[in-house]
Amino acid sequence: MNYDEYIKEVERFSGDEVVARLRKYLSEWKKDDSDVIQLANSIERFFGNSWIGNEDTHNHLYGLWSKFEKEAIEGIGGMTMNERLHWFSLFEHYESLQSETAQKVIYAKLCANT
């Protein structure tokens, strides 16, 4: 499951106000300046400090997030740039960038600038 697929799964439960906030944060992350490590920390805090109305929904979404985090974030150091772009659903955005400076922002976001 890549990032956009996770967002789509979260959308299924966005009738819950807390889940709707999670969905909004996940969508906005792709446009902000924070990297994948900051994303992981924010989502972990979100699940730890927010109360999703239905425990099954919480467990489902957190379980999927944990799997994504393990595969995509904890394993990011061994990935190629193309793999990172795929996992975080940033291929189209990256390919549309016109400047090297803008591409470097995506490299930093995906922890690929070392």
Rank of each mutant, 00 (worst) to 15 (best):
N59G: 01
E95T: 05
N2E: 11
K104A: 02
S99Q: 09
N113C: 03
I7Y: 06
D32Q: 07
D35R: 06
G53V: 13
S50T: 13
L97Y: 08
D56I: 12
G63I: 06
N59H: 06
N59M: 03
V36H: 12
D35M: 00
E11L: 09
W51P: 13
E69T: 00
A102W: 02
L64R: 00
Y3A: 01
G48C: 04
T101L: 11
S27D: 15
N41Y: 14
K24S: 15
F47D: 08
E5M: 10
Y107C: 06
E100R: 01
N2K: 12
G75H: 14
G75N: 14
W29R: 04
W29S: 08
T80V: 02
S27A: 14
Y3G: 09
G15T: 11
A40L: 02
K104S: 03
W29H: 05
F88N: 07
A108E: 05
R45P: 10
Y62D: 07
Y94M: 05
V10G: 02
G63S: 05
K70P: 08
T57L: 01
A112S: 07
E71T: 15
A20P: 13
N113E: 04
S89M: 00
S42P: 04
Y62H: 13
C111T: 10
F46S: 05
Q38M: 04
A40E: 01
E55F: 04
I52W: 11
S99W: 09
W29K: 07
V18M: 06
A112N: 10
E5K: 03
A20C: 12
G15C: 07
G15V: 11
V36C: 01
F68A: 01
D32Y: 04
Y6D: 11
C111Q: 03
H86Y: 15
V19M: 04
Q98V: 14
E92L: 02
L22I: 04
A102Q: 06
K30N: 06
L26A: 00
M1T: 12
D16S: 08
E69L: 09
N82R: 08
L90D: 06
G53K: 15
R84F: 08
E5A: 08
K67T: 14
H86K: 15
Y62A: 03
V36E: 02
S42F: 04
R23W: 07
L39T: 10
Y62Q: 09
Q103T: 06
S99P: 10
Y25E: 11
F88A: 01
S89W: 08
D56F: 09
L39S: 02
L85Q: 08
E74G: 04
K70Y: 09
D32T: 08
N49E: 15
I106D: 01
I52N: 10
R45D: 15
R45K: 14
S42A: 13
L61G: 12
N54W: 08
K31V: 01
E69R: 12
S96K: 02
T57Q: 02
E92A: 03
A40M: 09
I37L: 00
T114P: 05
I52R: 00
F47G: 00
E100D: 14
G77P: 11
R45G: 13
T101E: 15
I106P: 05
N113H: 05
I37P: 01
